[in-house]
Design a protein around this nucleic acid. Sequence first.
DNA 1: CACCAGGCAAGTA
DNA 2: TACTTGCATGGT
Length: 228
Amino acid sequence: MIKKLRADLIHQVFQRLLEAFGPQHWWPAETALEVIIGAILTQNTAWTNVAKAIAQLRQADLLTIPAMTLVDEARLRQLIRPSGYYNQKAHRLKLFFEHLEQHWQRDLEAFLAQPLGALREELLSLRGIGPETADSIILYAANQPSFVVDLYTQRVCSRHNWVPEDYDYHRLRDFFMDVLEPEVDFFQEFHALLVRVGHLHCRKVPGCGGCPLAPMLPDSLVDSMAKP
DNA sequence: CACCAGGCAAGTA
DNA sequence: TACTTGCATGGT
């Protein structure tokens, strides 16, 4: 019964966001390969910076699997510089493509076509791919229904008192996945909308002034949503 | 000038 | 297990 309430609230939130902002057309990339590269480059980094790095990779004709497999890490480092943490990220990219080479003969489609659980475990076993990067790749590159939790998801959920402040990644992911039908288009649009509304939430100031979710939350309902 | 961004891993106690 | 720290560029 609690789960029914939670599912209803989540769907109301989604509808409210969709009405306020419209479809977001995410992920901002052309191919599965670009989604994966972008997912690694955007770790704790503004997308504007990532876009510069991707543009440089495209300019250098590196947005193909063979090119990424063969490119020298030092060269990669310089090209992705604008995305920040470029030493770590260049290495993480190389590790991913080394793995694809050695375990999947560069067959990205086959790799992504695995069952969701196996794909997620394999991604998480790689250095530099944590839960958010893994779920982003699964949802937007593999088009399989894994709910993505990020900084904005946590901020919006805790600010609106749907979950405690310190809910960790997998509990917040379960908060959604336990009660939602696993539909890819819905998950994709929902995450994009949460990022969009997340930008409206001031980083320091509590509350959510100006965000379209503010008027829809009776405290009694909100309190009942917190997981026991 | 300070602070933040679509995280993650490694180190310490 | 539960904190803390390093990583780095570019926008506000």
